[in-house]
């Protein structure tokens, strides 16, 4: 299971990678913004995306919208500090499958990933 993590914070990418490794997902690739995420996605093999919202170059919402234009089925989890209802709804409308507000616990991330993967 190859997972793409898109987040401009190197600290946050490390934390997510570390958490994924602890729950059994070690095949992970990283991108620091949406544009780089699209490039990584284009290289193929990605089966799930975990993305931040607030990023330079291309933010998470635009990234999700572009991804959904060509890939309607890949599971996408948004992990962000944005916790207002209108933000969550906007992300869901853009095509996010589920939503986690930072700071998260490993258990929350595990639960969301497992529910997305069915």
């Amino acid at each position: 299971m190859k997972i793409l993590i898109v987040d401009d914070s190197s600290t946050m990418r490390r934390i997510i990678i570390n958490t994924l490794s602890r729950i059994g997902y070690s095949d992970v690739i990283e991108a620091e913004h949406g544009k780089a995420g699209l490039e990584k996605l284009g290289q193929g093999g990605v089966e799930m995306i975990i993305t931040d919202w607030n990023m330079p170059e291309m933010d998470g919402l635009e990234f999700v919208t572009v991804v959904r234009g060509s890939n309607p089925s890949i599971p996408i989890l948004m992990v962000t500090t944005n916790a207002a209802k209108e933000d969550i709804v906007a992300a869901l409308q853009a095509g996010v499958n589920n939503y986690v507000v930072k700071p998260f616990t490993p258990d929350t991330l595990k639960e969301k990933i497992e529910s997305l993967l069915g």
């Binding site: 919202w53 607030n54 500090t81 944005n82 916790a83 207002a84 209802k85 969550i88």
Partner: peptide
């Protein structure tokens, strides 16, 4: 967007 002010924070799971 950005970091949401505390008074606007909501429970993500219920919105989803």
């Amino acid at each position: 967007t950005g970091t949401t002010p505390d008074e606007k924070r909501t429970h993500a799971d219920s919105v989803v």
